[in-house]
Nucleic acid binder design. Structure first.
Length: 334
RNA sequence: GCAGAGGUGGCGGAGCGGUCAAACGCACCUGACUGUAAAUCAGGCGCCUUCGGGCUACACAGGUUCAAAUCCUGUCCUCUGCA
């Protein structure tokens, strides 16, 4: 699932997105809450209708954003056991994001799959802090589930997933997972270590991911939030059974000139490097995306170097197509 | 022809006696990017180096000074105004 945070996969139209083979996307509750606001999205028929998008849309709860923007003090606000309170940097208005509010906003966005608000903390939290994060995450998950049922969202065919917290402590992850299963969800999500799905060396947190994957009830999905690099997705799927992923990597890297290419030794191709200035080959030989079928590396090199939006569009199209081909290659399990 | 302004690294452009291998921007070279504050960010960018430093540089040629991109003289060139 590429991230369409504010209701668009950056640089792409919905038709272009569809052409990459993408039929699942992620939109963000916090960003859409701030602007244009859930009431407006609801009034306009929901985010999918606005986007003229027919696939599946999952809304993230905003838990990660609250962590990322408040804990790092980039936004003013605080997180308590009741949820998060913060000031919008756009207009200074005060917002509150509670487990119930997050579900309500997601309902107004009218997405298909929802995520409960979770307490995401820094990657180097102490065990004590991690325990509190788990405690709050469980409490919020319970409240969110109750609210989800109260609003009758299950009867409308919506799915609800939870986030397994516990930082770098497999035993905490195990406890969190056990308690979440008691509440019961459609999917179990791996919430990265401190918001990051990888450690500071760029490696997956295997013990933590494993313990969750081994416990998942039959028929429920396993969603590794934020994972990640092609090799990480492949590994997490083949070795542990994770079968839902979202990541900004293909889209952000595309805009920054890092393209995925199976024929390159390390699997990536930095298209803005001068060695591609006159390269008339497609980005990736054999790729069936719009960029590879119609244009050369030299053209995309030129566009991206000169800040042309079309360059980002073509690069994004290719990277997403690369990722969708990867998912297809993983088979039905994904 | 006369008057004025000016010539600085690949480009634009600071500096106007020492702390200048020379601000800043652009371009260029590397790298990062993992539930998107990201069309972003970080580092490098005269030559050599045993990483202490050394060498050559601010149009060109001289000069003043302990010391010059900075002051003086001449030469060449550019721009602007007036004829």
């Amino acid at each position: 699932m590429p991230d369409a945070t504010r209701g668009a996969v950056r640089a792409l139209t919905t038709a272009q997105l569809k052409a990459t083979g993408t039929d699942h996307i992620v939109v963000n509750t916090l960003h859409l809450l701030l602007s244009p606001g859930p009431e407006r999205v609801a009034e306009l028929g929901g985010i999918k209708k606005l986007m003229n998008y027919e696939g599946t849309a999952l809304s993230d709860s905003g838990g990660y954003q609250v962590f990322s923007l408040l804990h790092s003090k980039k936004w003013q606000g605080k997180i308590t056991k009741f949820g998060a309170v913060f000031k919008s940097p756009k207009d200074g208005r005060k917002h509150e994001l509670t487990p119930e509010k997050s579900i309500e906003v997601q309902m107004m966005l009218d997405t298909d799959v929802m995520v409960v608000l979770d307490d995401c903390r820094d990657s180097n939290v102490s065990k004590k802090e991690a325990e509190i994060a788990v405690e709050w995450t469980l409490d919020w998950a319970d409240k969110a589930k109750r609210h989800f049922l109260k609003l009758g969202l299950d009867k409308k065919g919506k799915l609800l997933s939870c986030v397994v917290q516990g930082a770098r402590f497999p035993e905490l992850r195990e406890f969190c997972m056990k308690e979440l299963i008691k509440i019961g969800f459609d999917g179990y999500n791996y919430g990265g270590v401190g918001g990051y799905v990888v450690d500071n060396k760029g490696e997956l947190a295997l013990p933590e991911m494993k313990v969750i994957a081994e416990m998942v009830p039959k028929g429920k999905f396993l969603y590794a939030m934020g994972v990640g690099r092609p090799q990480d997705i492949e590994f997490a799927n083949r070795e542990m059974g994770w079968n839902v992923f979202d990541t900004v990597i293909p889209t952000r890297n595309a805009r920054h000139g890092t393209l995925y290419c199976a024929t390159e030794p390390d699997g990536i191709l930095r298209i803005t490097r001068s060695r591609f200035a006159k390269d008339l080959l497609p980005i990736e030989k054999g790729c069936d995306c719009e960029a590879c079928v119609n244009y050369s590396r030299a053209y995309i090199h030129h566009l991206l170097r000169n800040g042309e939006m079309t360059g980002m569009t073509l690069a994004t199209i290719h990277n997403l197509r690369f990722y969708q081909r990867l998912m297809t290659s993983l088979g039905g399990n994904s």
